[in-house]
Design a protein around this nucleic acid. Sequence first.
DNA 1: TATACTGTATTACGTCGATAATACAGAGGG
DNA 2: CCCTCTGTATTATCGACGTAATACAGTATA
Lengths: 141, 141
Amino acid sequence: MFFQIDFDNRLAIYDQVVRQITFAVAGGVLREGELVPSVRELARELTINPNTVARAYRQLQDHGVLAGVRGTGLAVAAGAAKQCREERVGLIRSQLEQVFGEARQSQIDPRKFRTLVEQELERQMPDGAGKAESRKPKAEG
Amino acid sequence: MFFQIDFDNRLAIYDQVVRQITFAVAGGVLREGELVPSVRELARELTINPNTVARAYRQLQDHGVLAGVRGTGLAVAAGAAKQCREERVGLIRSQLEQVFGEARQSQIDPRKFRTLVEQELERQMPDGAGKAESRKPKAEG
DNA sequence: TATACTGTATTACGTCGATAATACAGAGGG
DNA sequence: CCCTCTGTATTATCGACGTAATACAGTATA
């Protein structure tokens, strides 16, 4: 499947599942109408408990990302893609707020911090370098 | 005192205390040899349990940041400043790795992500703007 | 010496996230 | 109809974190 669980992460497992499904829908990996793995199947795959998956799925239903197809399972709801893209920006922004806030509070030298940020940015998202870039015809969301 | 606890944060309280003490030492807010608040005093101040503070203090002792002064309390250990500055960079870098990694996995557009980063950077650390800046004669690690 | 402070240790309790083992109703497919 | 899949619900157990209430040894200070 398209994602994995980080057991060392402090984030609750069901929350990780929620995020990853959200990101998958936002990125088009999961399209509207497409069925998600069953509770038991995903649980087996991630070696976690079915109840944990069920909890994540229920939350995703409450948020309108998934919708039940009677007798068949759960599918990505109509209009979920746009909603998830917005949710994605919100989640990422809040993460940045927290990390940057702690960095600021730590009294690290702002220039040194910016260097750190640039390094990581370059290391993990080389495509976003500089301002413009020669379009690479590589797979992209 | 110089820090505060975020009870909504998923991070354990004792861990928040450890980080903040570490950052305070790294930033020179707490200097080597200086006494830290007593277990009970800090607990009262942060409205948390003395045991929680004690746990944080013990961990800081194990890491060599604090050292006991018999019958008096705990003080910032010799050589802790440099150690904490290194620790600070490591902590911040690992936070950045995690957030950037999740962003990358979310398949957000790299340019959009960079914009988000720049926005937050500007919003929280305006001093780090551009490349150079009028040197402020402020304390720095 | 007596008091008040220091850190430390112990035991009990509550919450929350996760696991585990079930059980149930509903629908698809042979 | 029967079997198997679906999501859902329930109850119990476990561990980590935090709280709470003590108790203790050691030291500074009056």
